[in-house]
C-alpha cells in the first residue's frame, strides 16, 4: 500500500530486466521461446510470467484476442506488468494454466499502429543532469527523446499513468537520489527503462525532462478516460518546431 504514493517508490517500481531484453526482440523467433511460467493467484487468477517485455506484450495481445473470441470465460481483469500478465476472475484457472504453454503466439506486428502524439516542451529541471548522463547537449536530449516511438508497457501508480518503453538501453537513467515532494502535473520524466507523464501533481523521484502541454492524460468524463492503455504507441512532439 505504501507503493501508491509515487511511481518511483518500490512497490510500483520495475526492475531492469524489462528493459534489457528488448535487445533480443528484433532477432527473436528463430529459436523457440521459453515456455511461460504460470503462477497461481488465489482461486480464480493466474500470473503468467514471460521471458521479457517483448514476450509479455505478445502474450498480452494473444490474451486480448482470446477474450474477444469468448475463450476466457469469466475473466474480469487482464493486467500487464513489466514481464507478466495477470489474469483474474477465471472460471477455470487450472485448465487455462495447463493450456497456456501450448498457445501459439504470433509475433507482434510493428509499425502499423497509429501513435498518440503528446506535445511537449523539453524544459525539465533535470534536463542538464540527463544530458550529462547521456553525454549529449540538453537540446539533443529532447531531439533523441522525440525521435523515439514509445509503447505503453503497463499502467499503474495512478489512473492514466503509463510506463512507456522504447528508449534504447544506453539512455536508461536512475531515479533521482533525492525525490521531489511535488512533481507538477504533466511532467515528462525518465526512470530506468521507462518514460512517464505525471497525470497529476504528486511526489516523485523520476528525472524531469519536459512538460506535456495541451494534454489531459486522464479525464473520467471522456471516452476513453485514459489516453494511455497497455500497448498504446506514443510519440512526443517538441513544441516550438525544433524538427
Amino acid at each position: 500500500m505504501s507503493g501508491a504514493a509515487d511511481p518511483e517508490s518500490p512497490a510500483t517500481e520495475s526492475g531492469e530486466r524489462a528493459g534489457t531484453e528488448g535487445a533480443t526482440g528484433p532477432g527473436a523467433g528463430t529459436t523457440p521461446p521459453p515456455a511461460p511460467v504460470v503462477l497461481p493467484v488465489g482461486r480464480h487468477g493466474l500470473l503468467v510470467e514471460l521471458p521479457g517485455a517483448e514476450a509479455a506484450e505478445a502474450f498480452h495481445a494473444e490474451v486480448l484476442r482470446r477474450r474477444a473470441a469468448g475463450l476466457l470465460p469469466g475473466i474480469t481483469e487482464i493486467v500487464p506488468g513489466a514481464r507478466t500478465v495477470l489474469l483474474d476472475g477465471l472460471a477455470e484457472p487450472r485448465r487455462l494454466a495447463a493450456e497456456v504453454g501450448e498457445w501459439r503466439i504470433p509475433p507482434l506486428e510493428r509499425g502499423s499502429e497509429s501513435a498518440v502524439e503528446i506535445p511537449v516542451r523539453y524544459d525539465g529541471p533535470d534536463l542538464p543532469d540527463v544530458a550529462g548522463m547521456w553525454g549529449v547537449t540538453p537540446e539533443e536530449v529532447g531531439r533523441l527523446h522525440a525521435a523515439t516511438t514509445f509503447r505503453v508497457a503497463f499502467c499503474g501508480f495512478a489512473p492514466g499513468f503509463g510506463y512507456l518503453t522504447g528508449l534504447p538501453e544506453q539512455y536508461h537513467v536512475p531515479r533521482r537520489s533525492d525525490p521531489r515532494t511535488r512533481v507538477p502535473a504533466g511532467s515528462v520524466a525518465l526512470a530506468g527503462p521507462y518514460t512517464g507523464v505525471y497525470p497529476r501533481s504528486s511526489p516523485g523521484g523520476w528525472q524531469l525532462i519536459g512538460t506535456a502541454v495541451r494534454t489531459v492524460l486522464w479525464d473520467a468524463g471522456r471516452e476513453p478516460a485514459a489516453l494511455f492503455a497497455p500497448g498504446t504507441r506514443v510519440r512526443f512532439v517538441p513544441e516550438g518546431g525544433t524538427e
Binding site: 500500500m1 507503493g3 501508491a4 512497490a11 520495475s14 530486466r17 493467484v41
Partner: peptide
C-alpha cells in the same frame, strides 16, 4: 519488476509484515 496485484493479495513490503490488499489497493507493485 512491477506486476499486477489481485484483490486479497498478501503483499510483503521490505519491513516484512504482510498486508492484505482490500478494495482500494494499487493495481501493480
Amino acid at each position: 519488476p512491477s506486476e499486477g496485484i489481485a484483490l486479497g493479495a498478501l503483499q510483503v513490503p521490505p519491513e516484512g509484515r504482510p498486508v492484505v490488499f482490500l478494495a482500494d489497493h494499487p493495481v501493480t507493485g
